[in-house]
Design a protein around this nucleic acid. Sequence first.
DNA 1: AGCCAGGCTACCG
DNA 2: CGGTAGCATGGC
Length: 234
Amino acid sequence: MDIIKININKIYEKLFDTYSNQDWWPTSSYRKDKLDTNYSYFDNTYSQIEIDRFEVIIGAILTQNTNWNNVDRSLSNLSRFTDFNPINILNFIEDDCDKFKQLIRPSGYFNQKTNYIKNISNFFIDLNGEVPSRSELLMVKGVGEETADSILLYAYNEKEFVVDAYTKRIFSYLGFFKENSTYFYVKKLFEDNFNGNVNDYKEYHALIVEHGKNYYRLKHYGVKDKLLNDYKII
DNA sequence: AGCCAGGCTACCG
DNA sequence: CGGTAGCATGGC
């Protein structure tokens, strides 16, 4: 058996034992505000399942290079004024773009992200309930590799491993690949070696982020990471 | 009081 | 191709 395969699976167990489950999507931590009837457009076309999906998708856009605490407030606002219905969102942006930007202001880059949300809303509507392919998602301006995989994994339960900055920092530090490895290389490494199911994929990514926050911020890269020291690939 | 967040696009050489 | 400026707020 390959040491890489063994350790990638062991690290998952170790992280899970240490941090327990992370309670990410689809369980949202933020407070869902009651719909504001003055601004809601009351579209009823979408089932709750679809709305839940889209809520994850919006979160995936808003959290790009942004702390989840900030995203939280934006999601609260969007819940209140649009109920995460893509039609309501598009109508809202059309109606009062500046106010929409204020809704998502807490999560930063609000000009860019307003456009991204407009794009993904149109894309989602055009899907008509179909599961998007990865390459289709990547054609949406505002959706890059990590966001595409996050959407597929957390909104659609597709078995796609999500690679983020922490994944690269932690596992390059541990010697699994060089720091500049491509997204695709790292993704494949995990998908070829990790034995987990879809839910384990969700958990693994969340655990990596949690561990990264503790030991792999830019200033103290890997410093004091005794937790994973045993799994270093020389 | 700086760093830094669950990145992406556009543009550069 | 690979590398990087710009985007923006809030938390610690």
